[in-house]
Design a protein around this nucleic acid. Structure first.
Lengths: 160, 160
DNA sequence: ACACTTAGTTAGCTTTGCTAACAAAATATG
DNA sequence: CATATTTTGTTAGCAAAGCTAACTAAGTGT
């Protein structure tokens, strides 16, 4: 994709125009590259029964600790009913449990089980293995470029 | 994730073990960063009726020119039935058309309509606008880092 | 005490992924 | 030439995951 063959900016005057055009082009390429990368990393892990959305949600609970269903829904940017269903499915898989809150009987607290933690770690390792292999074959400069860019991308994503 | 201060010495004489560790860490952070980035960029564009999968497929046809349904399915990494249904839906939206092939009556050739091109461009512009704004506020070095990394990521994705 | 707000669930719809089974056309083989 | 195989796309039917609307239960506030 990407309008790769689009015209060069009429580099008549200053940096502002050039900077804008450049930002637009980088936005396009970065977006496209991110899509391709994640598409290549097949997210669904049939072996462990951990789909993309489940792995993502479980990862939030494992690394972030127990939290309410609403917080988890917000973190995953889905609506409560969607998260409710995801949690039910993962609970049936034995990956996490619903707990009540002692001070507020409305809230549902979600906690990863030992099995959930174990399975998440294994799925993560499998998912990243193929990427790691490719990265190992990169020139050191390229790997360094990715390391640097990762930080920048994280910052960019945070301010989106 | 982990390593708050992760300035890795780019030493030319790294040992293999060290290199592996670094690749693993970069894999993790890059993967996570890509997810966060795309999550921030809400893909579904209700206004134009162009969901993520549709926008992506249409973009391939618009920029790559007419192609067979099978080629499009391969490009989008979905099975033929999935693409067949996607094409049917987009055809009903008037975004593209199915055409027969003169030499092989089995194949279906898919071509974007003028409306499809127009709507894709508009949706792309909307989708990238917010990212572009953030990128424009970056330090030139950071923007350059992203530009460089985009190319590397594209290469990495291609060999996944 | 009664109205309002908040947290989560249930019900039901849509989209998008898949596999299995099929039809039609092209190609290979006897 | 006739038939078997392969290729291309479709249809049918299932499951996952997203949504909104409507509901229950529990806190809050006037």
């Amino acid at each position: 994709m990407s309008g790769a063959s689009d015209r060069e900016p009429t580099r008549a005057t200053e940096s502002p125009a050039r900077s804008n055009e450049s930002a637009a082009r980088v936005a396009d390429r970065l977006h496209s590259a991110a899509i391709q990368l994640l598409r290549g990393l097949r997210v669904t892990d049939r072996k462990s029964g951990l789909s993309g959305p489940r792995a993502s949600a479980l990862s939030v609970v494992v690394f972030g600790g127990p939290m309410t269903l609403g917080e988890l829904a917000a973190a995953e940017q889905v609506r409560p009913p969607t998260m409710s269903r995801l949690v039910t499915a993962m609970e049936e898989q034995g990956l996490l449990i619903r707990e009540g809150d002692s001070t507020d009987a409305r809230v549902v607290r979600v906690r990863a089980t030992a099995k959930g933690i174990r399975i998440l770690q294994a799925a993560r390792a499998r998912r990243l293995a193929s990427l790691q292999v490719v990265l190992e074959s990169l020139a050191p400069d390229d790997l360094q470029a990715l390391a640097t860019a990762s930080g920048v991308i994280e910052r960019v994503a945070r301010s989106l």
